[in-house]
Every structure is written in C-alpha cells, then in structure tokens.
Design a protein around this nucleic acid. Structure first.
Lengths: 131, 131
DNA sequence: TAACTGTTCTATAATTAATATAACAGATAT
DNA sequence: ATATCTGTTATATTAATTATAGAACAGTTA
C-alpha cells in the first residue's frame, strides 16, 4: 500500500500514519495477516524518524488493529478487529459533535449531512479519493 | 448560556470554548444579535486567562460567527452565518474520514453510521446532552 | 474622571511532536 | 560464529503549541 504524508499538516505525522493504516484496513487494501514494513524501513521510505513510526504502531497495537511480534515483525491483526464498544461510540460522538454543530450553523440539513456521510462511507470502503 | 470546560481534556481550552459557542448557535440558545460576555468577564467566570477567551473569539470572528465591535462588545453575528462553502465541506470530510474508517474497521454498517449521525444531529439541534 | 470595551506587546512555563543516537535481546541468514 | 535484521528502551535536544501573566493603548460609556 502506498502511503503519503503531509509534513505541512497541523495533524501530527504519527496520527496521519495511524489513520492511513486504518483507512487501508477499511478499504481492504490491508487484510488480516498482511505484513507491515519494519519501523526502520518505513521511516526511511517516508523520510521521517523511526520513533515517529513506532508511535503510530504502538497506537494501532493498543487498539488491536495490528500485532507486533518482537522478532518477526508487524502484521495486520489476523484474529480480527476491535468491536464497536461503548467507548468508541462515545469517542466518535464527541469528535463529531463540533463538526455537526458547525454544519447546522451553516445551514446544512439533516438530509445533506446524511448524503455526505453516505458518500464518504462508500468512498472509504472502496479505497477511493485523497490518493 | 451556561458553559462548562474540561480543563483535563486534551482538547485546548480555546477550542472547547469555540465549539461550545458554535453548539449554542446550532441549538438556538444563542441567536443573531445576542451579546456575549467581555473577554475579561468570561475569563473570570470560567477561571481561565483573558487571552484564552480572546483566542476563541478571534477564531469565531474570522469564521463569521460573531462580530466584535471595538468598544461595544461581542455579539452573535446579526447578519447571518457563513454558508456551506467548498472549503468547509473539504474540511469536514478530512476530519470525518479517519473516524468513519475506524468505524468501518470495527464493523459498523452504513445504516448504523447513518443512525448515529441522525441522532446526534437532532440532539445538537435540540440543545441536548453533554450538559 | 472612572470604569469599561477589544487589542497589542512582551515574557514565561508546561506540554507535545519530532528528531538524533545509542544500546539491548532475540531471531535469522550466510 | 558472525553479521544483520527485528522491536524496544533510554537519553537528549529542538521547535511549536497552549496557557498564563502583567502592562499598556484607544475609544466608549456612566
């Protein structure tokens, strides 16, 4: 999978990387069991520091999206992915709230919001756009 | 309108405040022309620094949600609010993308996402929850 | 005149993000 | 065995962001 980072973004590099991999899983470009590059190799490829890669990997490991075998390497979790927990729903709602509030202020209808989400959902699932 | 901040949150205070005011507008607790407290008074009420309040106000002014009259004070923009611009749609999509991707990884269906958004939209518009 | 507005300036402290080296333990290939 | 690769850990430094503090300014308003 090809990964591009925006070094000018206000979003931290390690978070961008974490999100790109999540998107890779969502679009099935990355499947359970697939290997990921070593922290050093990916760091070299992307032109960033090893620890930045490691930070992203640690996040993904903690959340259960990848497994890290100490000497074998890193793989997309072969045992499946975390469920839709109450914590996750709470997190997504609190992140979504400010966006939705601004959308309402700007006059977006519920129908328009629904269409935007629907389209984005499909776009992600098909691995499209922003690449 | 009553405003509460979470000083333990990882989200900056000035952003929390900016978002609370946006949510106040979305729920019509704050209407065009309504006055907002002076930076000094609000700072005292919330127990934070004047400059932190000012930073939030400047954001809201730049985006067109409030007007700041140099000696009169701060009011919710009486001339209406910004439109749904292409920039805004782009911004909301890029913020939404990682959340939706993770939701997909966790097995949320499009229908479940739609329900979550619908419910949150209504909740915000009615000024409910998280208060 | 006194008290209030937003604004601007300078300064400081704490935290976060990213980088740079270096070393370690364990596995693997030559 | 030796060299090379894995993730991990430790220390250190730099830069940017966040929040605070105090002071001053220009222009109302009471």
């Amino acid at each position: 999978m090809f990964i591009s980072l925006d070094l000018q973004s206000e979003s931290p590099i390690y978070l961008q990387l974490r999100n790109k991999i999540i998107e890779g899983i969502a679009s099935k470009q990355l499947k359970p069991g697939d290997p990921l590059p070593s922290v050093r190799n990916l760091a070299k490829d992307l032109g960033v520091n090893m620890h930045t890669i490691n930070k992203a990997y640690q996040l993904l490991k903690t959340d259960g999206f990848i497994q890290i075998h100490r000497q074998k390497g890193v793989v997309i979790n072969p045992d499946g992915f975390p469920e839709v927990t109450a914590d996750f729903v709470e997190k997504i709602k609190e992140e979504l709230r400010p966006m939705l509030a601004e959308a309402i202020c700007r006059g977006m209808t519920q129908e328009e919001v629904r269409r935007l989400c629907d389209n984005l959902y499909k776009e992600i699932a098909e691995g499209g756009a922003a690449e």
